[in-house]
């Protein structure tokens, strides 16, 4: 689905992406993990056709992104890190407009239902809560029924309930057969969702495998967690007390 070969991108004096190569297979959820500034967003933007790489090749479904960015953009769904939509248009109007931009006629109601915003069709984007905004931007990324969807830090800034809701949404996308590539700096999110993860640092991929294999690999080196392992985390406590129900409606 995605083939990245030796992608490089330099901004002035920073080598943001320094030779990144990987593949994403159809139907999988592929995660890119890394600290802020590791080059995750730049890598994703080069795959989305929003930024030309200095060198290297990016292929989406066999199509060269640099050569035919419009063709690639038509096929993929994109959720950007900072979501922004026009003011003074309702969610339904925005989805219709985006549908036209992609050459698809869409049913705004179906898309909104899919992201649990079925009753907010007449609202404006700026009146939504953080979690609702993220969900809406996923709905906007689905207007062209994409085979591949890019999610850049989809759960950053969300409370635990909204994040779990986002996870369910992403699992639903995968169940529908959509390939997902996401970036995150939450490890539990990567563990929960991703079939495979690439860990990037300073513009390079430093590890790439399934979450389980990566953990096993670390254990084989003799690493042991200093804190005693427990069956539950503080987040589990938080969720069991406050419930799973969304708070932003």
């Amino acid at each position: 689905m995605i083939v990245a070969k030796d992608l490089r991108k330099r901004y002035d004096d920073i080598q943001a992406v320094d030779g990144v190569s990987f593949e994403v297979y159809p139907g999988e959820v592929f995660g890119m993990l890394g600290p802020n500034g590791a080059g995750k967003t730049t890598t994703v933007e080069m795959l989305e056709g929003m930024r030309d790489p200095d060198s290297g090749v990016a292929l989406i479904n066999g199509i060269d992104v640099t050569r035919e960015p419009m063709r690639v953009k038509k096929m993929i769904g994109v959720q950007l890190q900072a979501n922004a939509f026009f003011d003074r248009l309702t969610l339904s109007e925005l989805l219709k407009l985006f549908g036209t931009l992609y050459g698809h006629s869409v049913s705004p109601q179906d898309l909104l239902d899919r992201v649990d915003l079925g009753d907010r069709g007449k609202s404006q984007f700026k009146t939504l809560s953080g979690g609702q905004k993220q969900r809406f931007s996923i709905a906007a990324a689905l207007v062209n029924a994409p085979v591949l969807i890019f999610l850049d830090e989809p759960s950053t800034g969300l409370d635990p309930q909204a994040r779990r809701n986002m996870w369910e949404l992403i699992k639903g996308l995968q169940a529908d057969g959509t390939t997902v590539m996401l970036t995150t700096h939450y490890m539990e999110e990567a563990e929960e969702l991703c079939d495979r993860v690439a860990i990037v640092d300073s513009g390079r991929i430093v590890a790439l495998d399934t979450p389980l294999a990566l953990v096993d690999g670390l254990l084989e080196t003799g690493f042991r967690n200093q804190r005693p392992t427990r069956e539950a985390t503080l987040e589990d406590v938080f969720i069991s007390i406050t419930g799973r129900a969304l708070r932003d409606e």
Binding site: E48, M70, K73, A84, L101, Y102
Partner: peptide
Amino acid sequence: QYRQQGVLRRLKAAPVN
């Protein structure tokens, strides 16, 4: 405003000339 909010970036991600 569109540029500061990132609306233009979102349009750039769409197949819009």
